[in-house]
Design a protein around this nucleic acid. Structure first.
Lengths: 148, 148
DNA sequence: GGTGATAGTACGCAGTACCAACCATAGTAG
DNA sequence: CTACTATGGTTGGTACTGCGTACTATCACC
């Protein structure tokens, strides 16, 4: 990665949409960078976060990630090869496979989380506590309004 | 992409960081989806946006995108093959290659932009005009605080 | 006019993600 | 209890992304 935070086009277009897209890019750049420092792709990081404290079937994990189940096979394969997750047969369905974090996976997840938070503070640190609360609430309102 | 808006982990962690990451994912999901509808990856979409109205060298474009120049070759190759951009020799440096949008590229860019805005309105639509202004300003303050 | 820097490209590698096809098991109908 | 259909995962093939390491052509300078 060259300069992960580069690439701001359309300097001063009107809308909220623009701010949203630029924020998303900046945030993703941070995630990508922190991930790369730990040899994790963003998808892998998400999977680690999602698997925190639970055990999910391949399909369920695919749904959370918004990916095809066929994509999961490779993703879990690689993570398993690295010792971050493990596959286990599901109790109630012999076709199904559960995925769960190994101790190494848990540890890495617990290392990466705070790193992301710390790096993102570089962005959020410019705001006052009140403003931080305000953005958070507004963003959450936006997110909650989604799925109809 | 299956369900581009899925994947919300850590339901109610404390921080702004969380809201930021979730917003980024949701936004990126929209971008990815709209891009896919037009056979554009997110990187290609960004490139189209960056090239709007200007003509950039490979290296300059790489810097904007935060990518290695070796990555650009393939990216521009594919876009060129699709007739979206063209390469042209640079006026003042015979080593350099300028990249610019073709009419088709311009047209596609002008089609995709509004589509993105429309789709993202599904997110922002939940806010009142005042709130929209507030988030925009706060996000912009965060973004401006970056590069030291 | 030689030397080191810079602009792009070529090539090989690994990862991501898709689709279509495929087994195995489940669930349901008859 | 068999037959049919649906579901869970994997396999194999394709395309794209992005990196690092060469390599060529040009530039800039002294």
């Amino acid at each position: 990665m060259n300069d992960p935070v580069a690439g701001e086009e359309k300097p001063a277009r009107d809308d909220l949409v623009d701010a949203l897209v630029r924020t998303a890019h900046a945030t993703m750049a941070v995630l990508t960078r922190v991930g790369a420092e730990n040899d994790l792709s963003m998808t892998q990081m998400r999977a680690l976060a999602i698997l925190r404290g639970r055990r999910l079937r391949m399909t369920a994990l695919a749904d959370y990630l918004g990916l095809e189940k066929s994509t999961m096979t490779g993703l879990v394969d690689r993570a398993e090869r690295r010792g971050l997750v493990a596959r286990a047969p599901s109790a109630d369905d012999r076709r199904a496979v559960d995925v769960l974090l190994t101790p190494a996976g848990i540890e890495l997840g617990e290392h990466v989380g705070p790193r992301v938070a710390a790096e993102l503070s570089a962005l959020t640190g410019r705001l006052t506590p009140d403003e931080r609360t305000a953005v958070r609430e507004l963003l959450e309102r936006m997110l909650d309004g989604r799925d109809e």
